[in-house]
Design a protein around this nucleic acid. Structure first.
Lengths: 354, 354
DNA sequence: AAACAAATTGGAACCGGTTCCAAATACGCC
DNA sequence: GGCGTATTTGGAACCGGTTCCAATTTGTTT
């Protein structure tokens, strides 16, 4: 293993000073063509790669060429897409990404995670809360501290108390449109399934749903929310409750699921109970996950443009890290896309409830 | 932003030498309780975090506390599980993971990626080729070069020309058992769908299948392989070809899919064509992905124990990085689990082909 | 060919820590 | 209290680069 090499070894072999080798490496200053070629030839022949840690140490010019990505464990497709796009974009610009996972279903200290980011003096940090846009009480403090050391961009709706750049998708409005879509198909009794324990904690999705219910005069059928109901199981449970524990006149004709994953579980349970989709019940998912076009029937869902936001975030971070004067943070809002497939049918006019 | 702090600032404030502050930070040498408390109090109060780049520079003792993870883009659940488990385990041991994605459907230079890993003098590297265990011609060269700088563990079957530790799942044998399972349920005409363009490139899965077909005397129905057929679409296409382009006597009664994802597409197309699973066609997936229990019917599949292997890999890497004498590489083989659900039915004895 | 400016190069200081070595202090024992 | 040893502390060198400054070389102009 490892016959370690330094610029001093290269310098000795080339018969020049270490500073000259450094100049060749960085390309900042002038080096005569002859010297440059001579040194470069040795660097190439020896496969010399300068130690990034040493380069990072110089001055206060950040040059770790690394971006920290703080996000929930990538078990869901939503986070996977963001991570993937962010890493790809970072690499395109000569940066790598260091992954800081927020464990799911386990206690963790955000302060400790932020310490790690600071300790590494990264060039920037990307925060994505994931599908659940709920904010822990200790998040603002930790992220604000982080911002004293590096630029931060959040793929998230604005969070009170944090003064960073937010790339926000106005999911609430799109969810509103989705419910409106159900309304136009004739549905008057709807339910929202999945999400956090209480509707209030389920973020923009629940907000959009509730606003639509109120403004359109729909009847909301309250459904059971499992603890941390972001899984397919919680979709199953919700459907089980909605249809087996309610009398015939009190069932929804349409379901808005917190996510495609929740919708997947719901579809299964509906099938088990012998209910047809969309004939008996319409259902809408969220996230436009890869499997959503392959369910039976294919899911009508919402695309959050996660990749686009991830790319924007990385570009923003890298630009900020290069500027000496901190750029004022801003909030970008974009509307997600509503993707109509077959899980709501095409029926028009008023329809009977189950 | 950033009122940067160094141990010199802390030392001045505490009225001690910088070396003493360092001793408090590392805890390696003895410091009197009184001094330690005094210094620690200031460190805490000022939220001082030592610069990892500077620490990493010391001696040739690697201490970047970082592990590089080289894997395909995490669009599939298989890679996601490995990344997630590896990162969690690394963090548990005080390390972070730097993600190096191998772009899907795009050219890339492994040599360049390896350069980045070397440049950062990581403590170790984890390689996972992903579901497709095909080896590019330039991989051995690049990984061997990497091994001169840091320990490497591959979550992969042994790759010719690379002398690192391999954590291998004997998928070939398990696939063999899966086909045997089909045989015992009475199936005599089977097809393998998905995977690389040619069967030969589809790795252990295809090998196990072909061996079983040969040894059990089954009839293999050759199926179309789409380019890079690891998607649900390729499952659809394969089924379309298998059942619409073949005369009645030449269709399979059972399908082994390259992955759950391919099986998902196949299930959809079978449904579209009005074929019942498992009554008309049995199907087996692979990877035990989260959605495999939620398809209609739930998929019989194979669990590759990815998380377990990821954890083992990280532990192995960290242990190796601490040892001065390089430990000889080894190959660990473990059998994946065959998970029987409902997509093959429970019929016994010989059955008729379609 | 001399004088001067511009380009190139070497040497040293520095980035922010760790660690070695020697000096200073504390401790134990007679 | 004096002496020897163990512990604690400060100072300096070092890790592997970058960059500043000054010295040297090169090139231009008269």
């Amino acid at each position: 293993m490892a016959e370690k090499m330094t610029i001093y070894d290269i310098a000795r072999e080339a018969g020049v000073a270490p500073s000259t080798v450094s100049r060749v490496l960085t390309g900042h200053s002038n080096v005569s063509a002859k010297t440059r070629e001579k040194v470069q030839a040795i660097i190439d022949r020896r496969h010399f790669t300068p130690n990034l840690a040493a380069q990072a140490l110089e001055q206060n010019k950040q040059r770790t060429k690394t971006i920290g990505v703080i996000m929930p464990e990538v078990t869901d497709h939503y986070s996977g897409k963001i991570l993937c796009a962010a890493t790809r974009e970072a690499r395109r610009l000569g940066y790598e990404t260091l992954l800081f996972q927020l464990p799911i279903g386990e206690k963790y200290d955000i302060g400790e995670i932020v310490d790690q980011l600071i300790r590494r003096r990264l060039d920037g940090a990307l925060y994505s809360g994931g599908v659940l846009e709920v904010v822990r009480a200790d998040l603002p403090g930790a992220l604000n501290r982080l911002m004293e050391y590096m630029p931060l961009v959040a793929i998230s709706p604005p969070i009170a108390g944090i003064n960073c750049t937010f790339l926000h998708n106005d999911l609430e409005t799109t969810i509103y449109h989705a419910v409106q879509h159900l309304y136009m198909l004739g549905h008057r009794r709807t339910a929202f399934i999945g999400g956090a324990r209480t509707m209030r904690d389920s973020g923009a999705r629940a907000c959009g749903y509730l606003r639509a219910v109120r403004e359109l005069g729909l009847t909301d059928i309250p459904s059971y929310h499992g603890e941390g109901g972001f899984t397919a199981e919680s979709g199953e449970i919700a459907v089980l409750r909605l249809f087996s524990e309610t009398s015939a006149g009190h069932r929804p004709s349409a379901i808005l699921a917190f996510s495609d994953l929740v919708a997947l579980g719901a579809l299964k349970q509906l099938h088990v109970m012998g209910l047809q989709v969309p004939e008996d019940v319409a259902i809408i998912g969220c996230d436009n996950t890869f499997f959503s076009a392959y369910t039976l029937p294919p899911l009508t869902t919402i695309d959050l443009y996660s990749e686009e936001r991830a790319r924007t975030a990385v570009n923003e971070l890298i630009n900020c890290s290069k500027e000496s004067t901190p750029k004022p943070p801003f909030t970008l809002v974009r509307a997600p896309a509503f993707i109509v497939r077959e899980s709501c049918g095409v029926m028009l006019g008023r329809r009977e409830n189950l």
